[in-house]
Each structure stands twice: as C-alpha cells, then as structure tokens.
Design a protein around this nucleic acid. Structure first.
Lengths: 133, 133
DNA sequence: TATAGGGCTTCCAGTCACGGGAAGGTCAAG
DNA sequence: CTTGACCTTCCCGTGACTGGAAGCCCTATA
C-alpha cells in the first residue's frame, strides 16, 4: 500500500505519516523504487495513533499506548493510569480556559463597542497592580 | 531600571522581555554599558502584554491591543471585536476539550484497571472504522 | 515515443512563544 | 582582589507537524 492510500484510509496526511516514521512510531517496508510499502498492520497502528492524538495524548504517550497495546501481558491498570493522568490534564486545561473566559467575558460585557474610545477591556488590561520598588 | 527589576515588577521572566524587544513589542533605551534601561512606560506596556497573554491573546493580538491602547482616537468597537473573536476561540477550544474529556472519561470508566490485560481503553483506540479500498 | 499528470522521495525551513545554557562583560560589596 | 549577582549576545531545543523546492517514478494518452 502506498502512502497516499494509507493516509486516506487512516485519515492522516502523508506528511504526518512520514513524520511518524521519522520518530520511530512505525517502520514500513520499502519497495525497490524507494516507495514506502505499508501493510495492514501499519494502517491499524496509524489509525490507533490518530485516535489517541485526537483524544489529546502526546506522541510519547501514543508510543507508550502502542507498546501496551502490543504487549499481551500488560496490566490494564497501567493503561488506565495513563488515561487518568491525561484526563486530569484535560480538566486542568478546561479550568484554565474557563477562568480566561470568565475574565474576558466580564470585560466584553462592560464594553460598549461603539465609536467612542472609552474601553473597559483596554482599561482592564492596563490596570495592573504593579509591584513597587 | 534594569531588566531584572522590570521583570520582577511586571511578573515576566527577563528572557521573555528580551524576546518582546526582539520582536518589536517594546524598545527600551540602552546605557553606555549596553544594559537595557527601562522606563515606567515600558513597565506598564509589559504588564499590559502580560495580562493580555494571560487571557490567551496571541502576541500579534497583543501588538494590536497595544496599538489600540495607545491610539487616543480608537473606537471601542474594534477592541470589543478582537476580544469577542478571542472569546469565540476560547469557547471552541473548551468545547473541543470537553468532547475529548467525555470520550476519554467513558473509556476510563469502562476499564477495570487491574492486573488483567483486557482493556476497553486500548480496544476503543484500536477499534477504528477504517476506510476501505 | 514524447509528454503530461500525479504520486512518491528527500531535505530544509518555518511555525509559536519562549526556555536553557554557554561564553563573556559589568558592578557593588567585602 | 575576589566573589557573586547581574547583564549581554548567540545558538539550540521544544511539539507536532506543515509548506515548499528539487527531483525520481509510473501510467495514460496523443
């Protein structure tokens, strides 16, 4: 299977697949003409990685997840721990964004948004409690 | 004022302040010995930028916000538009993370997390609907 | 047989917003 | 005179790709 087909079927850009090979996530065969030759197993791995990436796992975590996936003797506890850590990271990020959102929405609500220069948004950004001396 | 003091008072690392100079956000004077010499105006600008960055605005948006801040003839509508666009981006990001969170939490709940290898998380990642042909 | 196109290859550079660290100059205190 | 904190520039690395150039390969058509 050429890279174009595997890209289409896995839902990843060819560039990304080459990158995954470069960093050692997959290792497709090569044909005599130098073209990469992907097997179904590669396709499955790539789809697996694509899903994990879509859930926000880092590349390194994907590497670990792939290794666990291929390790018949794994303990599901290890996978679950990884997923829970990531879940905590997602929650922290959501909380951070919600804080930003609240502050920004507050400023936006206070701003008339007309032709006059008075602007609580700019005032809010400027009104800093600077440390002294 | 040396970079260390302005860094402390603005709450930004010296490295970041040098970077902001490099990309033209600020332009402090120089002393004979080559040291940067920051005025209060620089401090205020840096604090302004720091706040805008903390709200998630990009550097380019900070540049625009600074320009608007210094433009006495601005219209608050322009600031508000910028802020609303950013707010929409934040909302989109929150929604994306919440989607991730829901999927991941579902998988985590289904996983026993014990010494056995059976793992719905890995199964969920592997169970891809691959395109055919 | 020539050619046109699409797909494949590698390599290099850029993204965003810094952070780490090296090599070296400057300054105040003891 | 030395110590140590501070300052300078310069270069590389981050994460996960993305864009683009230069050039080879393969197939179909005129």
């Amino acid at each position: 299977m050429n890279i174009g087909e595997v890209a289409r079927r896995a839902g990843l850009p060819p560039k990304t697949i080459r990158y995954y090979e470069e960093i050692g996530l997959i290792c497709p065969d090569r044909r005599d003409n130098g073209y990469r030759d992907f097997a179904e197993t590669h396709l499955h791995k790539l789809a697996f990685i694509g899903r994990a990436r879509a859930l926000g796992f880092t590349i390194d975590e994907c590497r670990t997840l792939l290794a666990l996936y291929e390790d018949e003797g794994r303990e599901s506890a290890e996978v679950k721990q990884l997923a829970q850590d990531h879940l905590a990271r997602i929650d922290a990020k959501i909380a951070e964004l919600q804080d930003m959102r609240a502050t920004l929405a507050h400023l936006v609500r206070a701003c008339a948004g007309d032709e006059r220069p008075d602007c609580p948004i700019l005032a809010g950004l400027a009104h800093t409690a600077l440390s002294q001396g």
